[in-house]
Simulated scan of single mutants.
Amino acid sequence: MSKLNAQDKDQGLTHVDQQGKAAMVDVTDKAMTSRIAVAEGKISMSAPAFDMLINNQHKKGDVLAVARIAGIQAAKKCSELIPLCHPLMLSKVQVDFELLPKNYSVKIKAMCKLSGQTGVEMEALTAVSVAALTLFDMCKAVDPSMVISDIKVLHKEGGKSGIWRAQDEAAKLC
């Protein structure tokens, strides 16, 4: 579990009202700014499942193409899945895959972008999660023991907070 910085502690939980009840954040007075979020995750599988994936030999078809479309669609439907998320007019959703043959895994990366009053981290995380679940669904007949892991936000920018990068991402820039 990550440690909260001083700014996070001062803000408290944003989706809880004064009485501790769940509440949707009011973004009415927030400025419209360009906002971007990037998230990633990973799915690990057996060598046979990975080989079928990279050679496009699964009976269900082009597994990566279907997972990409599922991830994009999931980002667009995030507010229907996560109760207190705002419905957003996304201007760009991109889902990419990196095949990692050394450990028979696929890294999934999603980027969401818009001009709006609230961030798009949840949409990027949802895109990654549903793309991973779709890969699992399409490959489970070959390997029901796959593992989905390491889903996290890598980068976000926009709004009054400016640019934020995960520590491991910030270290790569040095």
Results as ranks from 00 to 15, higher is better:
3 K>P: 01
5 N>T: 03
8 D>E: 13
8 D>W: 11
9 K>D: 10
9 K>H: 05
10 D>R: 13
12 G>P: 06
14 T>W: 13
16 V>R: 07
16 V>T: 08
17 D>N: 14
17 D>Q: 00
32 M>K: 11
34 S>W: 13
36 I>F: 15
37 A>D: 06
37 A>M: 14
38 V>F: 02
41 G>K: 04
41 G>S: 04
45 M>Y: 02
48 P>T: 15
48 P>G: 05
54 I>R: 10
54 I>E: 02
54 I>S: 07
59 K>W: 00
60 K>M: 08
61 G>P: 08
62 D>C: 04
64 L>C: 12
64 L>V: 12
64 L>P: 09
66 V>Q: 08
67 A>C: 04
69 I>S: 12
71 G>H: 13
76 K>L: 14
79 S>K: 04
80 E>M: 13
81 L>V: 14
81 L>T: 15
84 L>A: 14
87 P>R: 04
88 L>D: 06
90 L>T: 09
90 L>N: 09
91 S>Q: 15
92 K>M: 12
94 Q>N: 15
94 Q>P: 07
95 V>A: 08
96 D>R: 07
97 F>Y: 01
98 E>N: 01
98 E>P: 04
99 L>W: 02
103 N>K: 02
103 N>T: 04
103 N>Q: 08
105 S>T: 08
107 K>L: 10
107 K>C: 12
108 I>V: 11
112 C>T: 15
113 K>N: 04
116 G>R: 09
116 G>I: 14
116 G>F: 02
118 T>P: 11
119 G>T: 07
120 V>T: 15
122 M>A: 06
122 M>E: 10
127 A>E: 08
128 V>D: 00
135 L>M: 10
135 L>S: 05
135 L>K: 03
137 D>L: 03
137 D>Y: 02
141 A>L: 10
142 V>P: 00
142 V>T: 06
142 V>Y: 03
142 V>E: 12
143 D>H: 03
143 D>G: 04
144 P>N: 14
146 M>V: 00
147 V>R: 05
148 I>D: 02
150 D>N: 10
151 I>T: 09
152 K>H: 12
153 V>W: 08
154 L>N: 11
154 L>H: 00
155 H>F: 11
157 E>Y: 05
162 G>L: 12
164 W>M: 06
164 W>Q: 15
164 W>R: 01
165 R>P: 09
167 Q>E: 15
168 D>Y: 03
168 D>T: 10
170 A>W: 12
170 A>P: 00
171 A>N: 08
172 K>L: 09
172 K>D: 00
174 C>S: 14
